[in-house]
Design a protein around this nucleic acid. Structure first.
Lengths: 257, 257
DNA sequence: ACAGTAACGCGTACAGCATACGCAGAAGGG
DNA sequence: CCCTTCTGCGTATGCTGTACGCGTTACTGT
């Protein structure tokens, strides 16, 4: 019951995802399809890139392609499936890492991996807004995981720890990018300059903060740290260093056992 | 231009948020309001808790209160504002940390802080789905920040590093909770047992993975690690340990300089 | 060559959404 | 007692995703 398509390998994946893997025989009976999944996804991505994910509606994408809204449902079973394909397209295949000398350099490799992922996210901020709908099962996501695992090849960690580290680092990168994207969107929504929003926010917190009930915050504000315009990468660089230090501590512990 | 309310302290905050801070004079002219912000937020939270954030619509909340949809707009200027108030209600005031002996124990304190935050998120999974709309400016968010900063009091870090650490740890907790919530939702949407979904996913990846193009992944799958049913907290415990180790490395470095 | 059939594009319809606008009536101040 | 102000709400607009069914096309088996 609830059987999926017959041509599928029984993967349980949505039909269009199987198509993305290259499985799936093109039906040969009816009229030739006037569209392709690729064209649809490309149009959707274009809309998302220029007007944000919220602007991506089935009707909007269809208009972009010069077809009716309902035509899209011959290629995609639901909007969520389109989202998945968009995410896959945005992610792209990871550029091959510069080969690491075996046994050493996991830190460099993992750092490179994190930076590469961050670059992808920043190039496609809209993709971060797509809710995660399950464990990754698309070619590019899998390729990214593969690369993360490879970066840890010479680390001496066991397989369970390796995948946990990949999850951990990937989560950090994603979260940081999402946070920055949300803040940027909020700033843009207010229609003010970023610095102006920041200083207004600081004044607000200052007014709302009670030095007695919030001693640590008051100290923070008094220190003037929030005024210094730091480079936009600051929090990422800081966090990544902490993340890699944390992984290093684990590896050293494992090596000593 | 775009002047906000007159009674406000010029904080630039939405009207209802100022009400949450206790500022704001109740107008005295017209008929007595039949609702309260608190009642509205409570109803919205109840809907979100039992049917998910997606079920929270203005009409639904109004029905819950026995009023018309548009009545709510006398209390809240837009749905986004309601979201903010819901988030604030869900977050709650942080329970006071067990007093830490001065100068030591930052790790214990920060760990406690992270666990407490995680407990709150898990009690209100819907709250994670609310998009972040700017830097925190609500009483409870501020209180959580304050507590995070206090945990680092004896660490010897400077103020800039302290706030970065708080951001870093808070981000980790939030991201982990969100990921777990998304996965749980995806599993539930499939209508299968969690273990069944997991094993189906593993079989799928196995089929899609090419041992030549994905050597590390193949090794992972062959190791059988993915089959062991690990306790649900595993990734959080693992990640938190890495996070705290990373912070510890920073503190040690700072202490040596 | 022709019937059968499967897939295509799409028109229509429906339920739900956020919210702009304006009006009737209630409550208090002058 | 009037007049200002604020409440609740009915109506309306323009979106959204998508279920359903119809006409048409292109191929397969006879």
């Amino acid at each position: 019951m609830t059987e999926k398509s017959s041509a599928s390998g029984g993967t349980g994946l949505p039909a269009s995802i199987e198509a993305a893997w290259g499985l799936r025989d093109r039906p040969v009976k009816g009229p030739k399809p006037g569209l392709t999944l690729d064209r649809i996804v490309a149009a959707a991505v274009a809309v998302a890139a220029s007007e944000g994910l919220a602007a991506v509606s089935m009707g909007r994408v269809a208009k972009e392609l010069g077809v009716s809204t309902m035509a899209l449902y011959r290629y995609v079973s639901a909007k969520e499936e389109l989202y998945l394909l968009m995410q896959e397209a945005a992610m792209g295949a990871p550029e091959p890492l510069p080969a690491l000398e075996d046994g050493a350099g996991w830190r460099e490799a993992l750092g490179q991996w994190a930076w590469a992922q961050r670059r992808v996210f920043h190039r496609n901020l809209w993709a971060l807004r797509i809710p995660i709908a399950g464990p990754p099962a698309s070619p590019h996501s899998i390729a990214w995981w593969e690369q993360g695992l490879q970066a840890l090849e010479g680390s001496g960690l066991d397989e369970g720890d390796k995948i946990s580290v990949v999850l951990f680092v990937g989560g950090f990168v994603r979260n940081e990018a999402l946070l920055m994207s949300d803040l940027a969107a909020a700033v843009e929504a207010k229609g003010l300059a970023p610095q102006e929003v920041m200083s207004q926010w600081e004044r607000t917190v200052e007014r709302l903060t009670d030095p007695v009930r919030h001693p640590a915050l008051s100290r923070l504000l008094a220190s003037g740290v929030m005024n210094e315009p730091d480079q936009p990468d600051h929090e990422f660089v800081f966090g990544l260093e902490r993340v890699l230090d944390g992984v290093e501590a684990l590896i050293r512990k494992g090596a000593s056992s």
